[in-house]
């Protein structure tokens, strides 16, 4: 069994009212420990409802959720303990900063876990370093930081709980390109350093393509697909029809293939596209111009 497993998970909003909506419909998932997974889908496809089940913010209408082999809600007294295993970073997490100093804000979660002062201190300093906040920022008010710094401080607060699964909902929304790359970079570093499972919810195929190893596609409250990147981007047409986009370079190379240029590869990054063009030119013993 993987770190996150669901069995026939269904969630219905407004049951018994005229506004009844099945937000998550009979989902069976098994996500292995250590994966870095992108979750994509249109607004309203069920992404947020799904991830809120993973740390017990929502209770399934029917079906089961297992975290690290333990069934959520099976034994209420253990709910808190299981919840500490899954850290959830909401959209625009910087709006949730509230403490007097950055240090206290990052320490809030670990403190709630009942850790010792020394351990809290170690975690605060380590995660601040991981997200690229200099030690002198720790004593500042969170409200003195820039937008990007605030967001990184908020993410650090969840990372400091050292969850086995870190879930981030649209962590790059509203950031400029540098801020976007910085957040994606730190997520990758965190994953490489800790080796724990990371789930990244995003609208941006480009972001997902350059960060994750597997992709979960949600459509109409169901899982359309859970596969590696090339498997997902090979379905460009179906993704487009469900209102999702594939990366710009993927579209260009799909058109090249349709126009008769022969290659097997699924292209989803600029780096890969460059290597492919050079390889195709070499294979034909062709000059570069």
């Amino acid at each position: 069994m993987g770190i996150i497993k669901t069995e026939n998970l269904t969630y219905v909003y407004g049951e018994g009212t005229p506004f009844r909506k099945v937000a998550v419909d009979n989902i069976n998932l098994d996500i292995d420990e250590g994966e870095i997974v992108g979750i994509i889908g249109r607004t309203g496809s069920g992404k947020s409802t799904l991830i809120q089940h993973f740390n017990g913010l929502l209770k399934p209408t029917s079906g089961k959720v297992f975290i690290d082999g333990d069934e959520l809600f099976a034994d209420k007294s253990r709910l808190k303990e299981i919840r500490f295993k899954v850290g959830l970073v909401f959209q625009y997490p910087e709006y949730q900063l509230f403490e007097e100093t950055v240090y206290k804000d990052i320490a809030f979660g670990p403190k709630n876990m009942g850790l010792s002062e020394d351990e809290i201190d170690r975690r605060v300093r380590e995660t601040a370093r991981l997200v690229g906040l200099k030690p002198e920022y720790l004593e500042k008010s969170p409200f003195e930081l820039s937008g990007g710094q605030k967001r990184r401080a908020a993410i650090a607060g969840v990372m400091a709980m050292e969850p086995k699964v870190l879930i981030l909902d649209e962590p790059t929304a509203g950031l400029d390109p540098r801020g976007r790359d910085r957040i994606l970079g730190l997520i990758k570093e965190y994953h490489a350093e800790k080796g724990t499972t990371v789930l990244l919810v995003s609208h941006s195929m480009e972001d997902v393509a350059k960060t994750v190893s597997k992709i979960l596609v949600m459509n109409n409250s169901k899982v359309f697909m859970y596969s590696d990147r090339s498997g997902v981007f090979a379905k460009a047409e179906e993704l487009t029809s469900m209102g999702l986009t594939v990366p710009q370079v993927t579209r260009v190379f799909d058109r090249l293939r349709a126009a008769g240029i022969e290659f097997e590869d699924e292209v989803f990054s600029v780096e890969y596209a460059k290597d492919l063009v050079l390889r195709l030119l070499r294979e034909r013993g062709q000059s570069l111009d």
Partner: peptide, 28 residues
């Protein structure tokens, strides 16, 4: 701290490898 469209980035990378392409491609 800004970026260019991915197709621009790709053509620039190919130009750096010696491909003969214009450097002002911005559309798919």
């Amino acid at each position: 701290g800004l970026d260019v469209p991915d197709v621009t980035e790709l053509t620039h990378a190919l130009i750096a490898e010696g491909c003969s392409l214009p450097d002002d491609i911005i559309s798919e």
